[in-house]
């Protein structure tokens, strides 16, 4: 039995946690809808579930300003909803309908875009976020806009040569980049230790001169605080790096049964579910479980309604393929 603390710090912590809990729950509810679409083969492309990583995505994206740039990664959707994107336009992309942000070019998370909220898209080749984020940060710095360019990527993509090229230049030019490495230890079926000779990515960024933090990616509050500091550093002209040690609870894509992984490891990962952990912490801080149930229920209702709106939007016709090649 925990009682509410009168301490203001704890009250603030609880408010922040509640906000992060809500964003994590929204991202998960959205992914639940997408998983359902994949299982019923309504959506036939690849989806890379973010289960286990929603908390850190929510924790970083809620620390960004609405006009800060975001280059999200392929694993999950919480980046987008936490940055303020309308789930109807995300799901419109999954359904390949005109309501989607790409107006029917979808489908999938890969290229959701919302420049009004700084969401500048995602490349189909991993590690391409490094030079692009450096360029966005350069534009912000040159124009004196004060925006940071946040880029998410896995530990796998951190091995790309683009990391080094962009990292050295970001340091040389004092670019406001915030790079967030979601280190879940697995690049599809390759264990990071086996293919990179280390489980730790942050030393690379530190060697480049980045402000570097390593954080438990399942602890939303810790990630949020790290993100606030990283963003502060970046706005001051010091490129910043966060390595969030996280868990990939599901396979690389929906339907990947992960035969290459130890079952006990997956079971252990499930106990480190960020939504579960944030909920436990909130209850410890005196939150009523009914409030948490209600947040999750609202998230489900929101995403189901968004799915209904998206799936009833018109499909593009064949002429759509010719639109938008040229400005």
């Amino acid at each position: 039995m925990t009682t509410m603390s009168p301490d203001a710090g704890l009250t603030k912590q609880r408010e922040t946690l509640l906000r992060l809990y809500r964003e994590t729950a929204r991202g998960r509810a959205l992914e639940d809808v997408v998983n359902q679409l994949a299982q019923t083969r309504t959506f036939r492309g690849f989806f890379h579930p973010g289960r286990g990583q929603e908390g850190l995505q929510a924790a970083v994206c809620t620390a960004l300003n609405v006009d800060d740039y975001l280059l999200y990664a392929h694993r999950g959707l919480t980046y987008l909803t936490a940055k303020g994107m309308d789930p109807v336009s995300i799901l419109g992309d999954f359904h390949g309908r005109l309501a989607g942000s790409t107006r029917g070019l979808g489908a999938g998370t890969v290229h959701c875009v919302d420049p009004a909220r700084g969401i500048m898209g995602q490349g189909g080749t991993l590690g391409s976020c490094f030079p692009l984020s450096a360029g966005l940060a350069l534009a912000s710095k040159t124009k004196g806009e004060g925006k940071v360019a946040a880029a998410f990527f896995g530990e796998g993509a951190s091995a790309r040569g683009t990391f080094l090229e962009s990292g050295v230049t970001a340091k040389a030019w004092g670019l406001p980049v915030v790079w967030i490495c979601e280190n879940n230890g697995w690049a599809v079926s390759a264990r990071v230790q086996d293919v990179q000779g280390t489980a730790d990515i942050a030393p690379r960024a530190a060697a480049l001169g980045f402000h570097t933090q390593v954080v438990d990616g399942q602890d939303v509050l810790a990630v949020h605080e790290a993100a606030i500091e990283a963003i502060r550093q970046a706005r001051g002209g010091v490129p910043a790096f966060i390595e969030a040690k996280t868990e990939r609870i599901e396979g690389h894509f929906t339907g990947d049964m992960q035969p290459y992984r130890d079952r006990d490891e997956v079971a252990a990962a499930k106990t480190r579910d960020p939504l579960l952990l944030a909920g436990q912490r909130l209850v410890e801080l005196g939150e009523d479980t009914a409030v948490l149930d209600d947040i999750r229920e609202q998230a489900r209702a929101e995403m189901n309604a968004a799915d209904e709106a998206a799936r009833t939007s018109p499909l593009p016709d064949g002429t759509r393929i010719h639109e938008g090649v040229w400005a």
Partner: peptide, 19 residues
Amino acid sequence: SIVEHLVVGGAVGAALGGL
């Protein structure tokens, strides 16, 4: 430096950012 990925990819990002 000798960073062609950055030169072309950075130009893409900078153009997206309005330069």
